[in-house]
Design a binder for these strands. Structure first.
Length: 321
DNA sequence: AACGATCCCAACCGCCGGACA
DNA sequence: ATGTCCGGCGGTTGGGATCGT
């Protein structure tokens, strides 16, 4: 048994609000406030609307000092940073942006920011289809936009966004270093060391094709010291220098990381996605990394794990077609 | 000009957790 | 301690607007 609906859906009006309804709701709340009971409010005003609908209309549209559209670069940055840190907690993100609503931020992210950051373009139709969810948008080709939506909360997406925002050369960043991915390591309390070699003091990874976004360099000096890296509630503690990284993963974080890695693994290798849509090709995700000469090289992750000590950047684009 | 494809955003849906009786 | 109500939240959808051919 589900809970009783908050209103009779057969009676209340749905759909876009009329100017008259807006005026009634606005006038009442400005004079009396919400009264602490949204469910009762429409009856008091004489509106044939669900209380939840009234609340949403007020919060997202009628409330004073609401800003619509025209997100600034600073707002973009805040949204991206917070999304990377805390995920799709839109209400929290919106709280950092005066005048913005969670709905606005959410819509802005899904329609513009995500595309901008992930760097996928309309002229790159052969993206990895990571979800089998159906699409409402008719399309003869792989639906690029739907693919992006299907990635909205995935660790994979956050992985790449993190790469793009924080740069490649932070060796401690969880996403940046596959060596930190837990099930690729011995189980239990773990101490991990990775060596950084052949890395100049400031190296820019140049993508091998024009379809990839350039990565901004981060001076290696900035990597020195003790750092704590958080990922979805898991905490990695350790020490960075320009030559090595030592990481400590406790059991509690380890289980969390295992779950995240499982999600990544599922996205990368499981289900009806990339590999099965590649027309039999034995390649999966492509990875770009620096070779000894500092040139970017491509490697693919197929049915087995091939780890590189090199710093890598992942591309969603697949080489099929 | 017409039509289909795609974008965009307001609004809805359903779940969850806190407050309260 | 338990059940119910309600607000809040994130995900999803519908449909108008815009773009491309």
């Amino acid at each position: 048994m589900g809970r009783a609906p908050c209103c009779d859906k057969a009676i209340v009006k749905k759909g876009p609000w009329s100017p008259d309804e807006d005026a009634k709701l606005k006038a009442y709340i400005e004079e009396h406030g919400t009264g602490g009971n949204w469910i009762a409010l429409p009856h008091k005003i004489g509106l044939n609307r669900c209380g939840k609908s009234c609340r949403l209309r007020w919060l997202n549209y009628l409330r004073p000092n609401i800003k619509h559209g025209g997100f600034s670069e600073e707002e973009d940055h805040i949204i991206c940073s917070l999304y990377i840190s805390i995920g799709s907690r839109w209400s929290i993100i919106a709280a950092q942006l005066p005048g913005r609503t969670d709905n606005d931020v959410k819509n802005y992210w899904h329609t513009k920011l995500k595309k901008k950051l992930v760097g996928r373009r309309r002229d790159r139709p052969h993206s990895c289809h990571l979800s089998s969810t159906d699409s409402k948008e008719p399309s003869n080709d792989i639906d690029h936009n739907k693919n992006l939506q299907s990635l909205s909360t995935s660790a994979l997406e956050r992985l790449q966004l993190h790469l793009q925002l924080q740069g490649l050369h932070h060796p401690f960043a969880f996403y940046n270093n596959p060596l930190l991915w837990p099930n690729l390591l011995p189980p239990g309390e773990r101490t991990l060391q990775s060596q950084h070699s052949n890395v100049s003091n400031e190296t820019v990874v140049k993508p091998p094709s024009s379809t990839m976004s350039p990565i901004q360099p981060i001076p290696l000096d900035s990597m020195n010291g003790d750092i704590t890296e958080n990922f979805d509630g898991a905490t990695l503690n350790g020490h960075c220098s320009t030559t090595s990284t030592t990481v400590f993963i406790n059991e509690q974080s380890n289980s969390k990381l295992n779950a995240v890695e499982a999600e990544l693994h599922d996205l990368l290798y499981g289900g009806k996605d990339c590999l099965k849509e590649m027309d039999g090709e034995a390649e999966g995700m492509n990875w770009w990394y620096l070779d000894d000469d500092g040139k970017s090289q491509m490697s693919s992750l197929g049915s087995s794990y091939n780890l590189h000590d090199d710093l890598m950047v992942q591309q969603y684009v697949l080489p099929y077609d």
